[in-house]
Simulated assay, not measured.
Amino acid sequence: MAAAGGVSRATVSFVLNDDPRQSVSAATRDRVRQAARDLGHVPHGVARALREGSSRVVVLDLDRGLEGNHSRSCVRGLDDELAAHGHVLLVRHGQHSAEATRQVLDAITPRAMIRFAEPYLTGHDLEDLGGGRKDGLAAHAALQIRHPPSTGTPGSRRPCRRRTRRRARARRRFAEHTVHSLGLPPLVPVTVPRPKQAGTGAVADLREAHPDVTAVAAFDDDLALRTLTALHDLGLAVPGDIAVIGYDDTEYGELSTPALTAVHIDAEAHGRPAARTALGLDSAGLVPVPARIIVRDPV
């Protein structure tokens, strides 16, 4: 390959291993890489992992129930940024035991392991991996609560927040902070379960116990759509009798009747700095795209 590229073996090694400590001109890099393609060279991952101390694989743990737009866009940004730096993303879905994690570490010696959304949970005013009150869970929870429903008044409306497994405590804490800052009555938590009949019963119980609730701020679009169905079955109008706003803006919300207004989060810009941090690179200059409300039918 060195002869084909017209360079030394050392230069070939520097280029193919993408050694940041060596200065090789762009023209020489292109010539070496073209020679490698012409000769069908395939990098030996195991040998490179032994030499570098880790593989060029980054593992992402993604819990069940996080397969919406936020997670997809975050994973896309993470994957693209890692690929740009010569690394591969491996996504593990679901809950994982310590033993299963150890097996992954032993088998592929990943460059890093990332737990999805950990930086996103912060409520601090940080300019970090997309978290905080500027563009993280705290900011997005506040954005959802602050969006005015078209029924009730700011002094009397009572948003209702649903709970679910992941991130529930943090979301509720940030939502409660927003409610308090707006001078609204406390949140009324309610679970809208499966199957359909159980969800309708839960919403009926909510209406009976808390007739002053005029808005539902759902944990995600799935729960918002369950609520819309329950309200329809109960003969209640949305937003005439009660308003509903989702969170994550999945494609299903646009297909419902009424169509679902929701918080839209472009998390690709959260994934890119997470990738750079995992690789020990500077993430300066990566600016998150602010979340926004996608308004469809009146909410």
Rank of each mutant, 00 (worst) to 15 (best):
T11D: 01
A27E: 14
G94V: 10
V46Q: 14
N17T: 03
Y120K: 06
V46G: 15
L279M: 05
P298M: 12
G285H: 13
D18L: 04
E81Q: 13
P211F: 05
T261R: 11
R162Q: 11
L62P: 08
F14N: 02
A35Y: 00
R72V: 09
L137Y: 05
Q34K: 06
V188P: 02
A175T: 11
V216K: 06
T214Q: 07
S181F: 02
C74L: 12
P110M: 10
Q34I: 03
I242D: 05
V57D: 06
D220V: 06
E251L: 15
A142K: 10
V46K: 08
V203P: 01
L279R: 03
T153Q: 09
T191W: 13
R226G: 00
S150H: 13
G5T: 03
H177G: 11
P290N: 13
D282C: 00
S54Y: 13
D297A: 15
A230T: 12
A262M: 10
S71Q: 11
P298I: 10
L137R: 01
G136Y: 00
R48Q: 13
D63W: 07
G235S: 01
D18C: 03
L60G: 00
G94F: 11
L228Y: 06
A202R: 06
A83K: 15
A84C: 03
T11Q: 01
H147G: 06
A10Q: 12
A36N: 05
H140K: 10
L187Q: 01
V104S: 05
S8W: 01
A3P: 05
E254K: 11
V91F: 12
L279N: 00
P159C: 02
L225S: 01
T101C: 07
T178P: 00
I242H: 07
R72C: 14
R194F: 10
P239S: 14
V58M: 10
V88H: 11
R161T: 14
D220Y: 09
A35Q: 01
M1V: 03
